Computed example of a mutant assay.
Amino acid sequence: MKFIIQREQLIASVQDVMKAISSRTAIPILTGMKIDVRHHGITLTGSDSDISIESYIPAEEAGIVHVENIEEGSIVIQARYFPDIVRKLPEKTVEIEADPNLKVTIRSGKAEFNLNGQDAEEFPHLPKLQTENSLSIPTDILKSLIRQTVFAVSTMETRPILTGVNIKLENNTLSFTATDSHRLASREVPVNNAEIEFSNVVVPGKSLTELNKILADTEEPVEINVTNNQILFRTKHLYFLSRLLDGNYPETSRLIPEQSKTVLYVNTKDLLHTIDRASLLAKDERNNVVKLTTKSNQVLEITSNSPEIGRVAEEVTVQSLEGEELRISFSAKYMLDALKTIDYDDVKIEFTGAMRPFIIRPTDDQSILQLIVPVRTY
């Protein structure tokens, strides 16, 4: 096996694949990265048995040569050292060669590294999912679906199903929902001519976070395939496979209040910055609690009180305030997380009382919903 490759191309692919490699795996060969060399291009593979990532570098694309002097073959290389070696090589091209005794030589300029490789035949084969039943959506839309929901997954293993994001495709609508039982985030997008439907697909939050880091901000399509225990995201040069979580995701629609008693419309950034300042004194508190009180003349007062440290109060003017007066306490962190993902200037917040969950939505977009359970303060 032998090839010469552009170093920048190799670094980019290695960084993507490293997101699936863990030093804490029970299967020793999975601490390595598989390199598969064919005349049409190079495939790098990493897996920790939860996530598997394949990155493909074509030998030539759009008239640009990425890989040359190719002799076909495969090897598994030690992932602990390989990325740092590649990153620090002196020249723009890298030559990698493996001999029949699984010795790997990496050359660039006057630098030469020799590593012990492992037999690629021992590396587990990734399942090739059927691609008939697939759904295709633009990459940037998938990234926004992930970003606007994944932060709300649970970090507690007591209810493992809540550590994932529930993905549904029904009636040509794709929806992502995440909840840790104290808050909920959901977003839906229309999908044209979807030939498949699924509902109880729960992808680990960790998998989606890593996928989001790898995907580029483009409108290129991502293909999504689902089987009973795995989900595949595929782009032109990337193959990202994740296991699904076992169990039934709770029915979250009944958590969402149908009517409201107090409704306010406010500038997203104004509210976000006010809560951010109020939370400065609540940082050490377990819940990081701030209190919102409605005043007359379309004014809200945001306060935080920490007996040992002090008190902060700030007023924020809202665009409109309808319904009953309200005093409600909530986690500043949850509120900031929710507001940061809403890419709109103005939000509508609907309350149904001081102890009931409240809803935050962009004023002009019903497809994004954030729900927060208030905190009881005495």
Rank of each mutant, 00 (worst) to 15 (best):
P58C: 11
D365C: 12
T377D: 10
T155H: 10
L238I: 10
S253C: 09
R38I: 13
I27H: 10
E220G: 11
E315A: 13
R234S: 12
P362D: 03
R243S: 03
V266T: 07
Q366K: 07
S331T: 05
N212I: 05
T173M: 06
D36R: 05
D364L: 14
E223Y: 09
A338V: 03
R24V: 11
T235S: 09
N297V: 09
R327H: 10
N287K: 08
Q298P: 00
L232A: 01
T293W: 02
K340N: 15
V290M: 03
V65R: 12
S23M: 05
R183K: 11
D99W: 06
E195V: 05
D276A: 06
H39R: 10
E324Y: 06
S144D: 12
I372C: 01
R7Y: 07
I4D: 04
E61P: 03
V201R: 03
V202I: 12
K236V: 04
Q78C: 09
V37A: 05
I11P: 08
S186D: 09
A98M: 12
G63I: 13
T252A: 07
F233N: 01
G46C: 06
H39L: 12
H125S: 15
V222Q: 02
P257L: 13
E121A: 10
D99G: 07
L321E: 01
K88G: 12
N200M: 08
P138N: 04
E68D: 13
T317G: 08
T363D: 02
S296T: 11
V76Q: 03
E188Q: 11
E170M: 10
L336M: 15
I196E: 14
T163F: 02
T235Y: 03
K206D: 06
K283R: 13
